[in-house]
Simulated assay, not measured.
Amino acid sequence: MRALIQRVAHASVEVEGREVGRIGPGLLVLVCAMQGDDDAAADKLAARVAKLRIFRDAADKMNRSVQDVGGAALVISQFTLAADTRTGNRPGFSTAAPPDEGRRLYERFAQALRDLGLPVETGEFGAEMKVSLLNDGPVTIWMDSTDRA
């Protein structure tokens, strides 16, 4: 699974003009299930996101996790993170998981964060969404569940 993580002061998501998710300080997590991903990949990525130390400590160093600071997560499905831009001008998305599996793994990822004690809001899988955020830092991190053992 892939994730683009942004440390935010606040974030929200709308679908068809109605707000479906909102958080205060925490993480906006855009997440994509890739072909071949499984439950273990979703759980592993969720654990890494929850422990990612990108919040400031008393010495103003990025040394605290979203768990440490009592933050929340807004999790948005984002199949375009699977974009293959190696050739041509139009990205391909054939490496993304099929929609049914993508939805299942997206929901598993969000639940895994909840199981780790984080308040989690979500968008709507497959919907056209409007995401608003105030990036704090800015801090933006790319993660892939296959990056380390």
Rank of each mutant, 00 (worst) to 15 (best):
A59N: 12
T80L: 11
F109T: 08
N89Q: 07
F79N: 05
T95I: 06
P91Q: 00
D136A: 08
D100A: 14
P119F: 10
E128D: 15
A97L: 01
G137Y: 01
T85S: 01
V66Q: 08
E107I: 12
D100E: 13
V69N: 15
M62D: 04
T146M: 00
A58I: 10
D84K: 04
S145C: 01
R86P: 07
L74V: 08
D57G: 04
L113D: 02
A82D: 03
M129I: 06
I141D: 14
P119W: 13
A58P: 08
M62Y: 04
I54R: 07
R108Q: 09
T122L: 13
G126Q: 07
M62A: 06
L133T: 04
L116H: 06
P138Y: 03
T80N: 13
A59V: 11
Q78R: 01
R90S: 08
V139K: 01
F93N: 05
S94N: 01
P138N: 07
Q111Y: 00
A127Y: 14
R114P: 00
L105Y: 05
S65W: 04
V75E: 12
G126F: 08
E107W: 09
S94Y: 05
V75L: 15
F125L: 07
R53Q: 13
L116A: 10
T87N: 15
L133R: 02
A72E: 14
A59H: 12
D136L: 09
I54G: 11
D68A: 13
K61R: 14
L118C: 14
G88R: 05
I54K: 09
I76V: 07
A97D: 00
L118M: 13
E107A: 12
K51S: 05
P98A: 11
M62E: 06
N135G: 07
V66K: 05
V69L: 15
A73E: 01
N135H: 03
A83D: 07
K51M: 13
R86M: 03
F125S: 14
